[in-house]
Amino acid sequence: MKIVKYEDIVLKVKLACLQMTTDLPQDVQNKLEMMAMQEDGQLAKQMLDIIIENANIARQENRPMCQDTGMVVCFVKMGQNIQIEGGLLADAINEGVSLGYEEGYLRKSVVNNPIDRINTLDNTPAIIHYDIVEDDVLIIEVAAKGFGSENMSQLKMFPPAAGIAGMKEFVKQVVIDAGPNPCPPIIVGIGLGGDFEKAALLAKKAAIRNLDEVNPNEKLLALEKELEVEINNLGIGPQGFGGKTTTLKVNIEMFATHIAGLPVAVNINCHAARHIKVVL
């Protein structure tokens, strides 16, 4: 049995909020720089240079890289042998978010519900997903998800006959429909299989996955690479002005599904792909 203190979770989540909104993760920065070198459109190259310069200013001057500092999404991986002392895990996460968004002068973009739309003033509640695992680990993957890209996401329940070809066409159509709106270059997170809500959850996991992570499933890895090339051949380019760099990476997460179904969810993330791993 390992004991984790409530206050430690609050503090680490707070620091994660402060860091991820001003310090673009290195995996994303590296990929942007690589794509900027390969970009052959003139305006497109300039847009990528501005995006990289912006990330550098944000890091050096401790300014949020994007004004949409997002809604916080957490994927919690908690061992069965962890005991949290001092309060509820969700409360600790929300308290960390509240403190981080206040201290960092981050934008509070959360409203209480879609009908009354009253700002909660501290960017809570965060959206929290739990995964109970073995041992005594407690890992919280924290992401700040902007809604310019979130609004361009889609889900479709295909019949199995649609196959991978149908899935690929759908993914590309989602990217075409989104066009300039989600601030390309984007990260395309795909959830394949499961049921309706599982597909969406997988897509979110894929959208915030570290870009350096190599998919251990060879079929998925090949599919990710194929889709990356095909999406970058669409010509949408950085900011949708035309160019080679439409996506930085395609990530796919997969799960078992029903004999009658082929759920496909596409969750788009912008180039300000803010994600950070908190280990307690």
């Binding site: 300014r63 949020p64 890289m65 994007c66 300039p180 601030c183």
Partner: peptide
């Protein structure tokens, strides 16, 4: 006009 989406630190300055 379009401003560069996501380049908010640069534009804020």
């Amino acid at each position: 006009f379009a401003a560069v989406g996501g380049a908010a630190a640069l534009m804020g300055k």
